[in-house]
């Protein structure tokens, strides 16, 4: 069986900026592929290609064995690839259920005259969220009134509900406290256990390590290394991320100061 997503030597330039080059990785069903790297390493660029926001200009991108090139996020969604972005997972002023169904609204009506099926929208949203263990007091409240973690969870629940095969998460835990980050990671694990392939982007190896099956490390747009979970432990992962020797130097420096 071919992997859900496979990229081979993929590359992308913005004008003269080489944002990404020679990156290869796979995403399998029921597995989490974690992309790690410093600011500006090209993580967002990689997932924007997968999500159909940008197009790659080198290499090959395959979905279930088929080479693809998405011209819009809609096309990626139609291939079962759903993305939850760093800050733009939701529209803050819209209600929870309207956000949940945004772009896939349930309708009823006669022939071409159709209107929103608000009752179905509300009950389905409540149920889908409850299934993922998210308990909201009111699906009519604006999403902006939810906490950051709750917002991420709504976006994840939405992707799972609409039958995504691949779930892409761009730093879902970046702005969250320890407890909320834990909640979001639990939903990530839940999505994985339901058989979705997950691409998780993060700065934080402590968030990545417990849920991930594979680690792709990026640095300045190029791959620094790729490891299966069995090949690397968390200390080594942290060391690699911080640039190995650089970190040791830093440790010395800090110890000297103390």
């Amino acid at each position: 069986m071919s992997p859900l997503i496979e990229v081979v030597d993929i590359g992308k330039t913005y004008g003269s900026v080489i944002a990404l080059r020679d990156v290869s990785t796979v995403v399998n069903a029921g597995e989490v592929t974690c992309v790690l790297g410093d600011n500006g390493a090209g993580k967002s660029t990689l997932i924007k290609i997968l999500a159909g926001v940008h197009q790659h200009d080198r290499g090959e991108f395959r979905v279930e064995g088929e080479p693809v090139r998405f011209s819009s996020p809609r096309e990626a969604l139609d291939h079962g690839i759903a993305t939850v972005y760093q800050d733009l997972a939701v529209v803050p002023l819209m209600s929870v259920w309207r956000n949940f169904f945004l772009g896939s609204e349930p309708t009823k009506g006669f022939g071409p005259v159709r209107w929103l099926d608000r009752k179905t929208g509300r009950t389905t949203t409540r149920k889908a969220l409850a299934d993922m263990g998210i308990d909201l007091r009111d699906v009519e409240q604006p999403v902006g009134t939810l906490s950051g973690g709750e917002r991420q969870c709504v976006a994840i629940a939405r992707a799972v509900h609409f039958g995504a095969k691949v779930l892409i998460l761009d730093e879902p835990t970046a702005a969250l406290g320890v407890k909320q980050a834990g909640v979001v990671l639990r939903y990530v694990a839940q999505a994985r256990d339901r058989g979705l392939g997950v691409v998780l982007i993060t700065h934080n190896p402590h968030h990545a390590y417990p849920v991930a099956d594979r680690f792709l490390l990026l640095k300045r747009g190029a791959p620094l290394g790729q490891y299966e979970k069995s090949e690397i432990d968390i200390n080594e992962l942290t060391r690699q991320m911080a640039g190995g020797a650089e970190l040791e130097a830093l440790e010395h420096e800090l110890r000297a100061q103390a």
């Binding site: 819009s72 996020p73 969604l77 733009l88 309207r98 945004l102 772009g103 929103l116 939405r158």
Partner: peptide
Amino acid sequence: GNWIFAVGGSAPSARAVGV
């Protein structure tokens, strides 16, 4: 109507979910 609110409230979010 839902799309009107969405493209005005946050165009990139709306586009990302296929509006």
